[in-house]
Design a protein around this nucleic acid. Sequence first.
DNA 1: CAGCCGCGAGTTGCATACAGTTTGGGACGG
DNA 2: CCGTCCCAAACTGTATGCAACTCGCGGCTG
Lengths: 231, 231
Amino acid sequence: MTSSNERAADRAYRMIRADIMSGDLEGGSRLGEANMAERYGLSRTPVREALRRLQSEGLIEALPHRGARVVDWRSLDIAAIYDLRAVVEGFFVRRAAITMPDSEIDRLSGLCDTVERRTAELSLRDPELIDLTAEFNREFHGSIARAAGGEIFAAVRGSVVIGPLVLRTVHDYTREDQQRSNRHHREILAAFRARSPEWAESVMLAHVYSAKTRLLEGREQLLGPASVEAS
Amino acid sequence: MTSSNERAADRAYRMIRADIMSGDLEGGSRLGEANMAERYGLSRTPVREALRRLQSEGLIEALPHRGARVVDWRSLDIAAIYDLRAVVEGFFVRRAAITMPDSEIDRLSGLCDTVERRTAELSLRDPELIDLTAEFNREFHGSIARAAGGEIFAAVRGSVVIGPLVLRTVHDYTREDQQRSNRHHREILAAFRARSPEWAESVMLAHVYSAKTRLLEGREQLLGPASVEAS
DNA sequence: CAGCCGCGAGTTGCATACAGTTTGGGACGG
DNA sequence: CCGTCCCAAACTGTATGCAACTCGCGGCTG
């Protein structure tokens, strides 16, 4: 009963987001409210709310009275965003290593189990796996932020982590990337159990910087080497 | 043309936010959409949008079908928020020391002139001075964030710096606090001119930690010493 | 007397009608 | 032939009516 229990606004949010991720909506595409409403069989109200949410998460940008456009993530200063993310997530994980309760560490460990099992079962590009991985990352790192400083920290993290970048990262995973990412998560939990902020932060920095490198390499392929030099 | 050009949703956002910061809406107050709509002479639609925005910024919390409540800022972990702010603003100022153009440094310097002049002219508790100081702080630190990484960084800063906390800080300024704050701003600009990230960051950290201390002392007065120990 | 069931009040969530604004094209004038 | 002005279409922004859901209170039953 997912569809009946879920709010229409949430459904609209998920569907639009999925279409952006799948590339069905290219960067620069124009999103009209009426257009979207008809496309997903809803009225404009929930679509409007979904667009506002996507806007605050940085997936789309809204022009006054001229509709919304899908953000072209390639134009963002990816290096800067990831450097900021490293600083912030490093700070969070340092605190969480002290404050996160054992029960929550166990819960995250259980989530790791699930992800690793599905990773082994599903094919590399399976949409279900991509979705699961993205969702797990949100949950894992969000939980760390929450343990470090409550809902406000989680909200701050949400504004630092731009959606398209995460999706692109997950989408371009190789098997090796997947396994390294999973190992990072495991090691962070190990550092939590040892209550070692320094250890936890070191792993987290490796985790973020590896993602940054992967993303920059991906951009190099898409745009050509010249553009990378420019930055 | 401010009010006619501005969207009703933005007006609702500003007004509700102002009423929260001014203490007109106490922490824990119940906010009904219809209630707010009548209060500000608007319909429910823009109010609804404003509430969603305030929720995503952490100023209010929404219950499923029972309306929204103002978050009690005194219950927030102020120390944690300011520690995070120190990390983030330190990162910003480090980068801005390299990237901020001379023209922008000059502009901020001019703003400092104005603030210092008005500080000398007006009485300590003059609402105009409090307003001016709060606005100047937003502009000064916002400009640093923008120089460090564009609009995205400015948005992140906005989510870290909770409105009520800043206003409370400014409201409780003593003459000495004012002058120290102004000297900090001047010294940051001096570090920018010298293009020294380390110098700039050191001053910024002093700036943030002094504000944190002031706020914690203020809370001690409001809640009594016992509550401070509890944290 | 205690616990459960059901109904009513009140609130949010959704759909739709209406108004204001922007933009682009076409016609007219130079 | 080109530039300018105006109008209409399309869109967002706003208001309001209606439906769905939650919670609390009162009465009924064991």
